[in-house]
Computed example of a mutant assay.
Amino acid sequence: MLLLYFNGWFAKNILMPLVTQRMVAIACVLLLPLVTVVYGNYWVNDNSMLRVWSFTTWCWLLPAIPFLWWQHTLRLPDVATFTARLWKPFVIGVAFGIADVLIIKGILHPQPYDSLPPFLQPFPYSIFLYTAGAIEVELYYRLIPLGLALWGIQKWVHTRWQTFVFSLIAVLTALREPLEQWPDGVWWFVCYAFGSGFLMNLIQAMYFKNQGFWATLLLRLGHYSIWHIALGLYVQYVELAR
């Protein structure tokens, strides 16, 4: 998040051509996942406990570059545009993360863990891994499918029907993640997990249409900052330290 605001400040206060601003913004998207690859593979003596990104995984981010570059042609904010309103989706994501911690850790698993569960990673590697993961998810769950949808809608759908068609596609794409991560457990938890996952993805789709890629990414980063990173810190340095 600091990288995004630094780039926005830099572009605003130090004159740069718009093309250069886009290049810097896209470099921000690619840089941290690349650092994650190097960190997991070369900066630790034993990475057997880490979920390591390979260079091949990082290369799968590259096909999204044209979608980032031409985002402004879809009547979305330019990828080089950073506004003060971007804190709002981040806070919404934090709220989803807090809810997950209260439900899953507070109610379903109040007892201390004896090792890091699969959805947590050691700190500070967790910062890099889950930021890279958020970028990957938002590129392939949001930017590419909804970018293609917006392009097709604006090209072939009558203006009167564009909002309806996009809303339908947004609902369908919002179903993807909760269906892929269908949980086990008691019925109310299954309903909660599916409902919260669907709602968060749907809100992200709406933010994507109105504020572009950075808004939807920051919403997911807000969620991950609590659910994956802050909870991981607590488990690693409080529960496992006892």
Rank of each mutant, 00 (worst) to 15 (best):
A80W: 09
Q204R: 14
V94K: 09
H109E: 13
G97K: 14
F67C: 02
R176M: 11
S225L: 11
L172C: 12
V238L: 12
Y237Q: 11
Y113N: 12
Y207V: 02
Y5V: 01
R22A: 03
L179C: 03
S126D: 15
R160C: 00
Y125K: 12
F96D: 08
S126M: 07
A193C: 01
R176T: 11
L179Y: 10
I226G: 10
A11L: 13
R142K: 08
T83Q: 13
S167R: 15
L172P: 11
L120T: 12
W9Y: 10
S225M: 10
Y113W: 13
M16P: 00
V91Q: 07
S167F: 10
W53H: 11
V101I: 09
E239V: 04
T159Y: 11
Q236E: 15
R242K: 14
V35F: 14
W60P: 01
M23P: 05
I127G: 00
N7P: 04
P33D: 08
D184G: 13
T131C: 03
Q181L: 13
G147N: 05
G147F: 07
G133R: 11
A241L: 11
N201M: 08
Y39K: 06
F128S: 14
V24A: 07
Q154D: 07
A25H: 12
M16I: 03
L172E: 01
H223M: 06
P110W: 03
A99G: 06
T83I: 06
I14A: 00
G195A: 04
Y42Q: 13
A230D: 05
L61E: 00
N47K: 09
Y140V: 05
G232C: 05
A25C: 01
Y192K: 08
L148Q: 10
V38C: 00
H109C: 03
D184P: 00
S54E: 13
L30N: 07
Q111W: 06
R22S: 07
L76T: 00
P110H: 01
A25R: 07
S48P: 11
Q211S: 13
A25T: 11
F10T: 03
G40N: 03
R51G: 09
I127D: 00
M49Q: 15
L218K: 10
A149N: 04
L231N: 13
Y192R: 12
V44S: 02
R176A: 13
G197E: 06
